[in-house]
Design a binder for these strands. Structure first.
Lengths: 224, 224
DNA sequence: CTCGCGATGTATCGACTCGATACGTCGTGA
DNA sequence: TCACGACGTATCGAGTCGATACATCGCGAG
């Protein structure tokens, strides 16, 4: 079953863990969260939601009640620019999804895992997006696993390129060079993140949480 | 019909334009050509080949004849490391595909086009891979179109990020920052390519083809 | 020598996904 | 007033992938 898209399910669970949401808003946040990497359509989202409901990991609340706290951060910001104050009252029969206890538990299990499944191409971005809900050790393991994976692939591509270089024209070559460079850049990015995480872990161990409040990646300067 | 994958068809046509190939070899070259960007499986390749045959753009030659010229570059290099000299004789009933006159014509039309379809995400890589078969003006138009497209998206993402920044944790932020940086890097890469192409066009116009024989992208140094 | 194993090779199937689309409400501006 | 775009739920057709089936060949180990 092509893995029933662990990434989508994890993303949904992770988003719903912060606040209950309805489908439309969920999709917007999904595509903002995964930004330039992936985009899911309704044809993917709604079946996934159904499946999650059927498995008891999330539940629906028809006709969202205008509870100020939940709604205030959940549905205001969208049309903020044009309307500014409107749309406070009843929208229409939305279907709001919320995590169940089973769902929370499942999410914790997934976020605590750091196996190969966590650093493969499709899964890594989602896992990273929820690093704030992941403990430090797991974060480091995932980052290192990802780095190893990329390095391996780099090696494989370089080798296969060396065997076929003579038969390729300059543009194809340039395309491959650029691809390699992108991956190399990504490895350096991971290096920066790993270093930061290690420093943080050390700082926290020494109970010196003073020095590094924000900036998870120290915006690794990469010019030397 | 989700565009019947113009990219796959173009890639097939472009590869077959250099030499007739059979499915297995075609797939290998396809995934080498598009390398880190895309990978096609047989479940995609064979239906596409069928469709192309049905539309008369390519034709099949059952049981490839051991004509030295065509076969020498078409099927030798694969097991080159281990065998070295073997496998010269009859393989098995391969199905070799070859461009028809219609196919060549269609390919030329596609390669000469420089509309929006040429610089969208899915299509750009293939078009770039066949730049050697594309004339200089078209190359520049595609590169510039691609650059504009990326810049627009950059702007859109930045704007939407500015509106939602406060609600995101540091890791999500870092993920988006990294995504933006990748795209910015790509824009600079395009700038380098465009400059090179312009220089070349000038050099060729002055009939000074002496100075710049290889290196399409001057390996833009990007450190200052 | 022979057996298994991996590369070569063609081909399909089930499950998954996307883009387009349908349908409907609401607020806004021409 | 009425078209248009945002919001909102939902499905369908068609493209795509990963797994798999089947078959031949060269090879190295036992």
């Amino acid at each position: 079953m092509r893995s029933r898209s662990v990434v989508l399910e994890t993303a949904i669970l992770g988003l719903l863990n912060s606040a209950p949401l309805h489908g439309y808003e969920l999709r917007k946040r999904l595509n903002l969260l995964l930004g330039s990497f992936r985009a899911f359509s309704y044809g993917t989202l709604y079946p996934a939601l159904k499946s999650l409901v059927a498995r008891g990991l999330i539940e629906t609340t028809e006709r969202e009640a205008p509870a100020p706290a939940a709604r205030a951060s959940g549905s205001r910001q969208a049309g903020a620019k044009s309307s500014g104050k409107a749309s406070l009252s009843g929208r229409r029969g939305r279907i709001v999804y919320r995590l169940t206890a089973d769902g929370k538990e499942h999410l914790q299990t997934v976020l605590a895992s750091s196996g190969p499944a966590a650093w493969e191409d499709e899964n890594f971005d989602v896992r990273f997006a929820f690093f704030a809900q992941t403990d430090a050790e797991t974060r480091i393991r995932i980052l290192e696993g990802r780095r190893t994976r990329l390095t391996e692939r780099l090696e494989a591509v370089r080798e296969s390129a060396a065997r076929t270089r003579e038969r390729l024209d300059e543009y194809t070559l340039e395309l491959q060079r650029h691809g390699l460079e992108q991956v190399e850049r990504e490895v350096r990015w991971l290096d920066g993140l790993i270093t930061t995480e290690r420093d943080r872990a050390l700082g926290r161990a020494r109970d010196h949480s003073a020095g590094v409040p924000g900036a998870p990646a120290q915006r690794n300067k990469e010019r030397g």
